[in-house]
Design a protein around this nucleic acid. Structure first.
Length: 933
DNA sequence: GACATCACG
DNA sequence: GACGTACGTGATGTCC
């Protein structure tokens, strides 16, 4: 007995896609127990629909209802603008199979389910809402999507289902600063980074509303744009009028979508238990099935409790941490028992205990294993006997330990078995320790790197942090066991009763983290990042670090002596100029002398109340007085001596005669590596004196060093990402990029370029990569701030894509809480929403991260491929310095190495990313690093 | 252990 | 209109 939709009728339109995405992101990754099918989003969707139906019962109950879905990714809007929604990320892998299930769910609930190829759900909603309004009825749109707000009014309202908040004309005004009929005008100006609607650069919702309210509507505004008082705003609107009109077309919903059904077809039907119950049972939604069956007054169907069918990733078990469950392995039988369990499982969490943190000198003390949460063991190997009163302990081995070789002979086949996954936290460390005893651990997973791929920028990735955050468990601290300072002992001196729980727990934690992280990688869409950019770095870096680089002690020692002499001379002069003797190395004393005693101008105190005496300050003072220049010279020598010529000698390994740095894979937020102990990524090169330090980095007899570095990789990536044709063309022509920029900006022909103009352009080019500001550039170039701002404005004018990139990147970061590299690495930006001075920092970091991070990804890809590519050559990769790789190669093979390695480096983005610019690699070769670079 | 300084890309 | 700014690192020395 259907009637014709009209007065007194009430249509509910549910934005299906919005429901799905909300459900997906709100819920943990649930899977169907019987077969592991992902169903988290379907479950959430059903819950939301059912809740909706329950809550809208009563006086204001809908008479008509439909769930509207998007269909197809290509719509008429793409015809207008091919970039529409172009930066939308791909649908998560585990969500895709759930989409058709939500359609089935809608039908199972006996609700009309509508979609139309080539149209967005929003257009269908607009069309139906208009029809309802024209028929004299009411319509409630269940969505909080701001794109739908243009429809509100005259009987049409929105309902935010999550907040249970109705949005009427006033609600829209709150959000947009205009009433619904002007919403598209505001959106056209403000644009939308999510849908990639361009809008007017630099104009947000606030400004847009202001303008629209002042001029009435968008057409009037654009016609009278010349009257706008603010010069920049005026110019923006005049320059981008076409883009703004296009934006309006993109956001304007099509209220005339051709539909093959009428409002009457959407009449509310009671749920049909015979349809709904089987569907819910098939999905294995136990709670929801019971609840709905109860409500409908039917018997809930029985859902078989089928055991999980051998899933790849086990369910995360909520087992309490219990130290009593940790075993000590003391015999071959006990170890064999554990090995059997490992083979049964197919994976094992492994952790090594050693005598120190330096993998090159640390000795293996024991090994812990874990195959199941809560069940872990520790295999002590060389723990020393603990003699009660003797503070110095004993060299005698404690009892109850297997002979080292017997234990390792048993474990080696397991650790090298390609069918057994070895799970570790910071596996590079353990892999290097095992490599010492001739064991090549593979294949591996690393929980630290999983966390880095998923949570980069959010927090650290050490075991303690991860355990506390993700397992809600504080690991046993190491400090009480080892002590600190001079009385600290090494782990082999820790009594077994303390060592077993500590060591076993680390393996237990690692396994639990892995159980939790493994399925989350997909959810966070970083599986490929982890598998191609993080995990494969472990063996590559372990090998490089173990190889090390030869450093000539005599060269360093001679330089150190020379520096000492020069410093002593300078020190005398400095004391004479100062009028008294003081510690030249103390910035505090220096500040007092310069600004209080000598009365030089320009003393500025920082927040700690001390005068700033940094190089830039002294540089400015150097024109006034001789002292600052001497200080600068002294500081340079002091730095070179202490950090390089002296400290470096202490890092020469006694056994190998080489220096072995350690790279942190998960240290830098952008994806770069960091080098520590010693840092070999900041060996001097910018000054002639410093550069000579590199002469001490030498090739072995009969070998030579080869250095290959990417030329201008970050600027090339910027040209690609921000899509700057002029920059791309210049790179393809092989122009000097800074001269080109200078020529373009300052209208100087390339052939008339002066070094000074080029220097300015270069500073601006780098500034752009760092998220330029007038202040920063002014300080860098030592020019007035206004002048610097003028340069920046001109740069944006000549390369407008840069500003768009900066704006869209910031908007993306605000929207998602992270930014991405071209290879999908995510860098979280939690401070992007901060207020005050923090905001500027976060915004610049967000702008820089995709550029620096993409460059980091590129060289990682090259490094991962390098071992195979050069396996046929007598060459080894030694060092990475962000955009440079250093190799040691047998004399005579250098040309072959250069060509092989260059090929790998230049094609590193293939086949995942096709850059619009080629990557160029420069090569050098010589007996030491100073010559090779 | 915080801070200032300075080495690198 | 003011805030306070170039991005990413690590090591060293001073000073409390």
């Amino acid at each position: 007995m259907s009637t014709t939709f009209g007065k007194g009728h009430h249509l509910h339109l549910i934005d299906g896609s919005a429901f799905i995405f909300r459900a997906y992101h709100a819920l943990p990754p649930l899977t169907r127990k019987s077969d592991g099918l992902p169903i988290g989003a379907v479950s959430g969707f059903c819950n939301m629909v059912w809740k909706m139906l329950e809550e809208t019962k009563g006086d204001d109950a809908p008479t008509h209802i439909a769930v509207i879905f998007d269909k197809g990714s290509h719509t008429f809007r793409n015809e207008m603008y091919d970039q529409y929604k172009a930066n939308r990320e791909a649908m998560p892998e585990d969500l895709r199979p759930q989409i058709p299930l939500t359609r089935s769910a809608t039908e199972a609930f006996n609700i009309a389910c509508k979609e139309k190829e080539g149209y967005e759900a929003d257009d269908i909603i607009a069309t139906l809402a208009l029809q309802a309004r024209e028929a004299g009825g009411r319509c409630t749109i269940i969505s909080s999507d701001k794109d739908l707000m243009q429809l509100v009014g005259d009987g049409v309202e929105m309902l935010d289902a999550m907040k249970n908040k109705r949005i009427d004309r006033d609600g829209v005004f709150e959000k947009f600063g205009v009433y619904p009929e002007r919403v598209v005008d505001v959106q056209a100006l403000a644009g939308d980074s999510v849908d990639n609607v361009p809008g007017a650069p630099g104009i947000g919702i606030k400004t847009a509303a202001l303008l629209i309210n002042e001029y009435g509507d968008l057409d009037a505004l654009l016609d009278r744009a010349g009257e706008i008082k603010q010069p920049k705003r005026r110019q923006t609107l005049i320059d981008h009028a076409e883009q703004i009109r296009l934006s309006r077309k993109l956001v304007l919903l099509d209220e005339k979508t051709p539909l093959d059904f009428t409002l009457d077809d959407l009449e509310v039907r009671d749920p049909d238990a015979d349809k709904l119950m089987p569907f819910l049972a098939e999905m294995e939604f136990r709670t929801l099935t019971k609840r709905i069956a109860n409500q409908l007054g039917v018997e809930p169907p029985v859902i078989e409790d089928t055991p999980a069918a051998a899933p790849d990733a086990p369910e995360v078990e909520d087992v309490p941490f219990d130290r009593a469950g940790y075993a000590k392995i003391g015999t071959g039988e006990e170890l064999q028992n554990w090995i059997d369990r490992i083979y049964e499982r197919g994976y094992v969490a492994v952790d090594t205990e050693t005598t120190g943190l330096n993998e090159m000198t640390a000795e293996l003390v024991g090994i812990s294993l874990c195959v199941e949460a809560g069940e872990a063991c520790y295999l002590p190997l060389i723990h020393k006997k603990h003699s009660g009163d003797d503070l110095f302990g004993s060299d005698e081995l404690a009892e109850g330990q297997m002979p080292v070789t017997e234990a390792l002979d048993m474990l080696k086949p397991v650790l090298e078995d390609p069918s057994i996954l070895k799970i570790g936290q910071n596996m590079k460390y353990d892999a290097k320790i095992f490599a010492q005893v001739g064991i090549t651990v593979a294949p591996i997973d690393d929980t630290m790197l999983m966390s880095y791929a998923m949570h980069g920028g959010l927090h650290g990735h050490g075991m303690d942090t991860l355990s506390e955050r993700y397992l809600n468990h504080t690991p046993i601290p190491i400090k009480p066991l080892l002590g600190s300072g001079k009385s600290a002992i090494t782990f082999d001196k820790v009594p077994l009763e303390d060592a077993v729980p500590y060591a076993a727990e680390d393996a237990d934690i690692t396994l639990r983290l892995w159980q939790q992280f493994k399925p989350s990688l997909h959810r966070a869409q970083v599986t490929r990042v982890y598998e191609t950019l993080e995990r494969p770095m472990v063996p590559v870096l372990a090998e490089m670090e173990r190889t090390g680089i030869k450093v000539d002690r005599d060269t360093l020692s001679r330089m150190s002596n020379a520096f000492s002499q020069s410093m002593a001379g300078l020190e005398d002069e400095i004391h004479k100029l100062a009028g008294r003797s003081f510690n030249v190395g103390s910035p505090k004393q220096l500040g007092e002398i310069l600004f209080d005693e000598m009365g030089l101008e320009g003393g500025k105190k920082g927040k700690t109340g001390a005068y700033a005496t940094g190089a830039d300050v002294l540089e400015d003072l150097a024109t006034e007085h001789e002292l600052p220049r001497r200080i600068l010279d002294w500081r340079q020598l002091s730095k070179l001596k202490s950090t390089y010529t002296d400290a470096l000698q202490d890092h020469i390994n006694a056994d190998t005669g080489r220096v072995h740095t350690s790279y942190s894979i998960a240290g830098a937020s952008t994806g770069r590596l960091a080098s520590t102990d010693p840092n070999l990524q900041n060996i001097p090169i910018r000054t002639e004196e410093g550069r000579r330090i590199r002469e001490a980095f030498v090739a072995e007899e009969g070998k030579t060093l080869v250095a290959l570095d990417y030329s201008q990789i970050e600027l090339r990536i910027l040209a690609h990402i921000a899509d700057i044709p002029a920059l791309k063309e210049a790179f393809q022509r092989g122009d000097d990029i800074h001269s080109m920029t200078a020529s373009e900006m300052f209208d100087v022909p390339m052939e008339d370029m002066t070094p000074e103009i080029r220097r300015r352009a270069k500073a601006i080019n780098f500034g752009v990569i760092y998220g330029i500001s007038g202040f920063g550039l002014a300080r860098n170039l030592r020019i007035p701030r206004g002048e610097a701002q003028g340069f920046i404005d001109r740069y944006f004018e000549r390369f407008p894509g840069i500003r768009t990139y900066m704006d869209t990147t910031k908007a993306f970061a605000k929207e998602h809480g992270y930014v991405q590299t071209l290879f999908g690495r995510r860098i979280h930006t939690p401070n992007i929403t901060a207020k005050g001075p923090h905001a500027g920092f976060a915004a610049r970091a967000a702008i820089n991260a995709p550029i620096q991070g993409t460059a980091a990804d590129v060289i990682r890809r090259a490094m991962v491929r390098m071992p195979d590519a050069i396996a046929h050559l007598p060459a080894k990769m030694l060092l990475q310095v962000h955009d440079e790789l250093l190799f040691e190669v047998e004399e005579g093979a250098q040309e072959d190495l250069i060509s092989a390695a260059r090929g790998v480096m230049e094609s590193a983005p293939d086949p995942v990313v096709k850059l619009d610019v080629t990557l160029n690699v420069d090569a050098g070769e010589g007996p030491n690093w100073a010559v090779a670079h």
